[in-house]
């Protein structure tokens, strides 16, 4: 596992060296992401609690069944959201490649991969904007739920409230991730990291971006699949 460490475990806590063997900023990024994980966890668990305490719940395959440029009555559940999922996974891969190129001090590759990551993030946000807009025009918003439960009974607004709050909070994270990546791209182009002699900043931005992808794995499963 930890083949890269040269220190023996007994020496790690005896001072003069980081017991975590990472740079300060990266450790703090990990702790920030952990607190963020608890925020998202609280949202999703609250959603689960309410769903468990209600007798009926809308069928996601009935709610999320449309597709851009498709005719009005189209029934294509899971198709659009799977495209969004793959966009985010692929942008995570390009981010990993950018981090890897940064470790090799390969500026050109960092720039290309960061651009791909930013484009992936923008594509995801556009998909989400389309979906929100479509749902809004169907009458769904905070406080209004046009959809019926699975068994045809009237549904409460809990469903739309949770959907818009949680995907909105995630979308806001994607948006800040795109901004952070654009800042990283500008800094790379200005040779900031070349001057510093390392691309550790890219690694921290990368951690954040992967976390956004990670959260989507959970949001996608909780709202669209189960």
């Amino acid at each position: 596992m930890s083949t890269s460490t040269t220190v023996t475990p007994t020496k790690l806590w005896s001072g003069g060296k980081s017991p975590f063997n990472v740079e300060y900023g990266k450790l703090m990024m990990w702790y920030f992401l952990m607190s963020d994980a608890f925020t998202f966890g609280a949202f999703l668990i609250s959603y689960g609690t309410i769903r468990f305490s209600t007798n009926g719940w809308p069928d996601p395959n009935e709610v999320f069944k449309s597709f851009p440029f498709a005719p009005e009555g189209v029934h294509a559940p899971l198709v659009f959201v799977s495209i969004m999922t793959f966009i985010l996974i692929i942008s995570s891969v390009t981010m990993v490649l950018a981090v890897h190129a940064g470790q090799n001090m390969d500026k050109k590759k960092v720039v290309t991969n960061l651009i791909w990551t930013i484009l992936g993030g923008i594509a995801f946000l556009s998909c989400q904007a389309w979906e929100w807009n479509h749902l809004y025009h169907e009458g769904a918003w905070w406080g209004s739920n046009p959809f019926l439960n699975h068994d045809g009974t009237a549904s409460s607004t809990n469903f739309t409230n949770y959907f818009f709050t949680i995907t909105g909070f995630h979308g806001f994270h994607v948006f800040s991730g795109v901004i952070i990546n654009i800042v990283m791209l500008i800094m790379t182009l200005m040779d900031k990291f070349e001057q510093r002699g390392h691309y550790l900043m890219i690694e921290k931005a990368g951690l954040y971006w992967h976390f956004v992808d990670l959260v989507w794995v959970f949001v996608f499963t909780c709202f669209y699949l189960v």
Binding site: M1, N21, S92
Partner: peptide, 20 residues
Amino acid sequence: SKAFYIVGYFMHLKHEVKNL
């Protein structure tokens, strides 16, 4: 398991020190 692969490999946690 998807979460494990993202955190372990993309976020590189699997290759960090045990303390971290």
